[in-house]
Nucleic acid binder design. Sequence first.
DNA 1: CTATATGTTACACAAACTGTAACATATAAA
DNA 2: TTTATATGTTACAGTTTGTGTAACATATAG
Lengths: 149, 149
Amino acid sequence: MSASTKLSNSTKALCFLATNRPDPQSSATISRHTGINASKLRRLLSDLAKIDVVTTSKGAAGGYILARDPADIHLQEIYCAVEDRKAFHLDVAALANGETGEGAAVNRYFLELFAEIQVEIEEKMRHLTLASILESISADAPSPSLPGA
Amino acid sequence: MSASTKLSNSTKALCFLATNRPDPQSSATISRHTGINASKLRRLLSDLAKIDVVTTSKGAAGGYILARDPADIHLQEIYCAVEDRKAFHLDVAALANGETGEGAAVNRYFLELFAEIQVEIEEKMRHLTLASILESISADAPSPSLPGA
DNA sequence: CTATATGTTACACAAACTGTAACATATAAA
DNA sequence: TTTATATGTTACAGTTTGTGTAACATATAG
């Protein structure tokens, strides 16, 4: 699926913006530091600007700035902003056309089940903030000042 | 994703076998009643035979028989038998190659998160039996003896 | 031996994703 | 006003992935 890379790429960009707040960072700069294609970054960050996770400014010395405190940004809103089709949208609906009675009932059953799962996933993500992610990754990252490198 | 159709198709076939137990049903017959391609059915049911959800017999008058009581067949084992790659396997691992320290840490973070979600989904499916599904779909299906048709 | 079933492989067609480029638009600064 | 540089959006070729179907080898009951 593609929700994964969009979500992780967005998170990588937002981590970089959190680290360099409040200096605006251009998509080219973020690309240089994360390895993510600049054009792709602009598409992701443009979506995140619409829900006020980042602010953007054009022109020279412009770029992207994290708009809120990392503790007030949670994964669920990033996920919803960046990904139109849900991760578990699962094309059961497409099959629900000319099916016999029992087949259609099974389709409905799974449609409902997957919707439940979808809700649970988003609920889980709603409790994960950018701040908590930053804490997690700085805790276990193989960074400088650690023995063994 | 493809896990959805494989799972729902398998369920449709198993529901049909449950209804007609213990008479063996050929892939052609199941195909006629479910609309699922016979060759695709054979591939699914062949996987389900390996974990003893169905028994198979070749030759004339052969076919597939549900091997266990529907109450002893749960969705999780169907799901795992039929789908090799996990629904939330999400290609973060593929990205974990030549990444800078922080990017790799974010990858690990999501890898762990998605693994957790995967476990929760399977746990949920472990409590759903074929019997409970049959009950659900017969309850809300627009079938005979219901008012309004 | 024959008819008929499963089990497995292969393949053409369609759909989706990826990575990248290109260009229109906006804006700060000279 | 002009210029340099940024975002926002669209397009597109290349690759991967999924789908639907056919074909054939294998096994088995009669």
